[in-house]
Every structure is written in C-alpha cells, then in structure tokens.
Design a protein around this nucleic acid. Structure first.
Lengths: 151, 151
DNA sequence: GTGATAGATGCAAATGCTTTGCATTTGCAT
DNA sequence: ATGCAAATGCAAAGCATTTGCATCTATCAC
C-alpha cells in the first residue's frame, strides 16, 4: 500500500520540523487523516493495529503530543468518554456536535467565534490564540427511542 | 458565620431534589458560590480547608458529580491543568478566556452560540442541549513579558 | 425527644488513563 | 557503511478519580 499524498505532505512537514519519519508515525498519521472526528490515543492505537501496524501505545501518546506541540494537531478532552482526544489541525477549522446518548458525531463547518475573538481582543487586551467548542445534544434516532420509552 | 442567602437557596434546591443537607455540602457550595471561575475538586477541597471545614476529597468528588447530574453545576476539563473543573450552573450562562502563560481567567458574559444552536437543530435534527467553550490567549501582562524576553 | 433508616462520609485501596526511565533499535547525515 | 541522536518498546510509576465498606448522621414517623 503506497502512502496517500497527504501523509507524504505531513511527513515532509514533520521533517521540516526536524522530526524523523518512521513506520509508526506514518501509520498514526494515516489514521488521523482518515478520521474526521477526534480520536483517543487508544482508538488510534486500535486502528493502527487493524491496519497491521504493530505500534506501542506509548508511541502513540508521544507522537500525538508532539503533533499538538507543533500545532499540527488539536487535543481535547471528551468528558463523557473520560479520555483525551486528538485530531489533525484542519485547514478548515471545525467543531463537532455529539449525541449524549449514542455518541454519534456531526461535523460543524461554520465557526461562530471568529468575530467574538476579535471583539474580545479589543475589550480585554488578550491576544486570543484559539478556542475549543463542544456541543451536546440528542440525535434524531435517540430522540425517537427516548420518546418511545416514555410511553 | 451565618450562611449567605444563596447557599440556603441552593440547599433548598437540593432538598427539593431529595438530597440531604450536610455541613460538608454547605461548605462546598459556599466555595463554589464564592468563585466565578471553574474549580478543580482539589482546589475546592483546599478552599474548604481554608474555611476550617474538614472535608474528605472523596466527598468533594461525589458531591460535585451529583451537582452535575442534577444540572446544578457544569463540569469541564482543563487540559493545561490536567484536571476536571466545576462551577455552578450560572443563571447567566458564561464562558471564560484563559491566559496560557499565567492562567489568568477573564469572564465572558455574552454567549455567541445561541443562534448557532437553533440553526443546528434545524440542519441536523439534533436536540441541542448544551455546549462548552474554552478560549485561549495571552493576557496583556504576559504579552509584555514575552516580548521583553525576545529582545 | 427518641429511634429507625436511608443516605452521606471518611478512609484506604483500586482503577485506568497517561507519563516516564531505560535498554534497544533505527532513521538519516556524513 | 558508519555513527549517533532520536525514536521505540516495555514495564513500572504517576496521578486524578472512583469505589467498597464500615461508620456516622440528617431526616422523618412516632
């Protein structure tokens, strides 16, 4: 299996950052690129395993943390799930809406905070660097199930 | 020291929820009411100690988790700090802007997401229940310190 | 007030995600 | 091909949080 072009880009990006290109890192990037939702270290580990890459969980933790430090990935914490999650910093800044019952995730493309950030900089003098948004709700399917239970 | 009126309200609110009023819970509420920023369980524990209330850390964890379940408090996770934090669900929904260098926190009163939430409900069919926003930046003081270092 | 009891607390041990130390391996520049 | 700094694997440690259980206590019926 040859590497998708994005991974090569990412790996080049890494070497520009003075970071070595290894089998493990390539596999981890492949997993992250293939996912449009944030993944926990363990989930990344599982997925690399499914792709026949035998990677140590510590390596996953070390590498994703490095990506975060280099601003190539974003870390969040999924409270429901109790784990940190990671996703590549998307060129198109996005957020997610999660169903509190089944965990389904919907991608939100539009970010409503850009304007607020500029306004905050003026008001507070802070240099606003970034933000995280987590949205919660109940997906249509779970709404139907819940209303049935109540009968 | 007599209890502020808000605490009595909160305690009444609790007993309406079928929950006992104890010395420990009163002290924890007092701490939460006095803070306008989210506090970790450990921080709450310290503050109750400062107020001469000897409370076990487990009790803090159990009680704040109960408040969250009853929607009387909100839980978040402070990634920089590596701990969950809690604050009373404010009648006036608010968010915070945190300095990544010194940890200073500024309160944001206006929530920009209400409109987005309504729009999302139409688009996705989700019933949007809530959200968390975390904003990051560098406060004016740290900006000055950082630019000095670079000279 | 008294007693009964479900619920709350304290303590210590367990849990589970994440980090770390160290010996071994490996990318990559020369 | 070689050397070495960086990366990996493994196991042990760290640390916030949870849990089991014995003890205590707020609350309610009397």
């Amino acid at each position: 299996m040859s590497k998708p072009v994005e991974i090569i880009d990412e790996l080049n990006l890494l070497s520009e950052h003075g970071v070595r290109n290894t089998r493990q890192r390539s596999a981890i990037l492949q997993v992250l690129l293939a996912s449009d939702i944030p993944l926990s270290a363990e989930r990344i580990h599982e997925k690399t395993k499914e792709a026949d890459a035998d990677i140590n969980l510590s390596t996953v933790y070390r590498f994703v943390e490095m990506l975060v430090e280099k601003n190539l990935a974003t870390k969040s914490f999924n409270l429901e799930y109790g784990r940190a999650t990671f996703e590549l910093s998307n060129p198109h800044h996005r957020h997610h809406l999660t169903c509190t019952h089944c965990g389904e995730i919907v991608v939100i493309r539009e970010c409503p905070l850009d304007k607020l950030c500029r306004a905050l900089e003026e008001d507070t003098g802070f240099a606003v660097i970034g933000h995280r948004i987590e949205l919660f709700g109940v997906c249509p399917k779970c709404q139907r199930e819940l209303s049935t239970e109540e009968l």
